[in-house]
Nucleic acid binder design. Structure first.
Length: 525
RNA sequence: GCCCCUCUAGCUCAAUGGUUAGAGCAGUGGACUUUUAAUCCAUUGGUUCAGGGUUCGAGUCCCUGGGGGGGCACCA
């Protein structure tokens, strides 16, 4: 806080007229510079009249949504005595001489302001004529409807709450330029209903997840973003540095290893919704930072987390949009409607590959056989890869694009699943699933490997692959192994990509539509 | 990193290689007391992303660079 000296702040002293630019030059024309100059001049004029164009607060009595809910059914031509105070942004102005109609919008609705010269008086009416599209205003008045039945507030007193000195985008077409929409998300949100809707849906999904999980006794936790080792997934990390400790740190690429430490600690059911960071490409499905929900449940296995996955996503769709029917985009550019309330398909990865190639595959097969099959299907193979990794590559090349309706792909090879428990019926596979919808991976879960001796061996295989040049492979996390040595109960774990769930339920085809500020190259100013 | 597309007024968009780059909205001036993207009359506003080049002539064609989009690669 500054010292409470009375009088205007030093920052208010600067005026348009103190600028070097000749006013005549700046006030002519209507480019951006001229428009801003005109509006800045209005600020000067208001201050000289003793009006603060940026007052500190406004006490509204109702929101526009509540106003419509309460009075939306009034007959046309109704005048009431009901006094209200509303606040919002001026989106449209219709001036018909001694009567001005303004469309005011607040967070959840729009209502018309009916401003009559005879009601507010000549002086106030002239001031209102100085309003610009985009200004924030507060209005005191009574509830009425026009002859045509438009719900309105008949304004008795109007207060400028904040002057917009930059003009709004096109009042009808809004903003369409993607560059501007993503860089200036504030402008996108002001004018594009669709953008506001998408982020509302995202919020409802996350709220729904929390409700479902709280209802099942999960505890929400927060674990470190700065990691000494970037584990829990195969991805390239962002690297940063801590000055005081003088050490390299990584931004997390997964939540997994810390959350499972908490299960060791006896918390039994934990989840975290958090940002993770992967130093990889940007696309319609990838942003370098994105939001993951991971949960871990003691005494559960992969079957339990499959059930939770289906419930979480279907319930979120219902909570966010009122229906379990979603539009799924196919890789071929088409789309189809799918009801998430229908049972979701389950198929083993090896069976999907066999379905697509006509050849039975299994990680126990000699790697040469699988290399030959990969070659037949144009899948290039790294010589370091074993049979399991090649099967995964074959799956991605031949089967993944066909998985439009929700499908749990199960039984991933051990080689590509260093933290998952081996299948109780097949030592070459794991008790694992990945959920695909619209050929996109949305979730990943498994029965957690809790044998510290086996986990060490798996980590050592990861370390060996990393040392051999595979930057995305993992390392031996000694502290995690120490935790496992204390005893991790049988545990089921799950990770869900929240951005992709939001894309699915909002019905959009780009991750940038559900991330408020997607990663972009810096703008040149 | 590679390939394709794109960039024109504050916003949304026009403009066969050929006058001085045009519209709508926003803005400005005027009319109007029930409008609904109000309407009507008048009107201001341009480094056509930047820099080169070809040409008598470039917003338009070519090259280089930049932003964005899409695809590929990368990506449990």
């Amino acid at each position: 806080m500054g010292r409470g000296k009375a009088g205007p702040s030093q920052y208010c002293q600067r005026t348009v007229s103190s600028d070097d630019t000749p006013l005549d030059d700046i006030h002519s024309g209507s480019g951006l510079v001229a428009e801003k100059a005109k509006r800045l001049q209005k600020l000067d004029d208001l201050r000289h009249q003793g009006t603060n164009p940026y007052p500190y607060r406004f006490d509204r009595t109702t929101t526009l949504g509540a106003l419509r809910k309460e009075h939306g059914t009034l007959e046309p031509g109704t005048e009431t005595e009901i006094q209200v105070a509303v606040a919002g942004r001026v989106m449209l102005l219709r001036d018909s001489g001694k009567l001005i109609f303004a469309t005011m919008r607040d967070r959840d609705d729009e209502v018309q302001l009916f401003i009559s010269k005879a009601v507010v008086g000549d002086e106030a009416f002239d001031a209102i004529k100085g309003l610009d599209l985009g200004d924030w205003v507060g209005a005191h008045g009574t509830v009425m409807t026009t002859r045509k039945g438009e719900l309105s507030v008949k304004v008795e007193r109007l207060e400028l709450l904040s002057k917009a000195v930059r003009p709004m985008p096109d009042k009808w077409h809004g903003l369409t330029d993607t560059d501007t929409r993503f860089r200036q998300r504030y402008a996108d949100l002001i004018v594009n209903d669709e953008a506001r809707k998408n982020f509302r849906v995202r919020h409802e999904i996350i709220a729904s997840f929390r409700r479902t999980l709280h209802g099942r006794g999960y505890i929400e936790v927060e674990t470190p973003v700065l990691h000494v080792e970037a584990g829990g997934a195969h991805a390239r990390p962002f690297i940063t540095h801590h000055n005081t400790l003088d050490m390299q740190l990584y931004l997390r690429i997964a939540l997994e290893l810390h959350l499972k430490r908490l299960i060791v600690g006896g918390m039994e059911r934990v989840f975290e919704i958090g940002r993770i960071f992967r130093n990889e490409g940007i696309s319609t499905r990838h942003n370098p930072e994105f939001t993951m929900m991971e949960l871990y449940q003691a005494f559960a296995d992969v079957e339990d987390v499959i059930e939770i996955t289906e419930t979480l996503i279907t319930q979120a769709a219902i909570d966010a949009t009122g229906t379990s029917v979603v539009t799924v985009f196919r890789p071929d550019g088409g789309s189809e409607e799918i009801d998430l309330a229908q049972p979701w398909r389950r198929a083993r990865m090896i069976d999907l590959v066999e379905e697509a190639t006509g050849v039975a595959v299994h990680p126990s097969q000699p790697v040469e056989d699988l290399r030959a099959l990969a070659a037949q299907h144009g899948v290039s193979v790294n010589p370091r890869w074993g049979s399991g990794k090649i099967i995964e590559e074959l799956f991605e090349a031949t089967a993944e694009h066909t998985l439009i309706a929700p499908t749990f792909v199960t039984g991933h090879p051990v080689e590509i699943s260093p933290l998952a428990r081996v299948d109780r019926n097949d030592p070459h596979l794991t008790e694992r699933f990945e959920l695909f919808v619209g050929a996109r991976e949305l979730a990943n879960g498994y029965s957690e490997l809790n044998d510290p001796v086996e986990q060490r061996l798996r980590f050592e295989d990861e370390q060996a692959a990393k040392d051999a040049g595979d930057a995305e492979r993992g390392t031996v996390d000694e502290d995690y192994l120490r935790a496992l040595e204390y005893g991790l109960p049988p545990t089921g774990g799950l990770g869900i990509g929240m951005d992709r769930v939001a894309m699915l339920i909002a019905g959009v085809n780009s991750i940038k539509e559900v991330i408020l500020f997607p990663t972009l190259r810096p703008e040149a100013f």
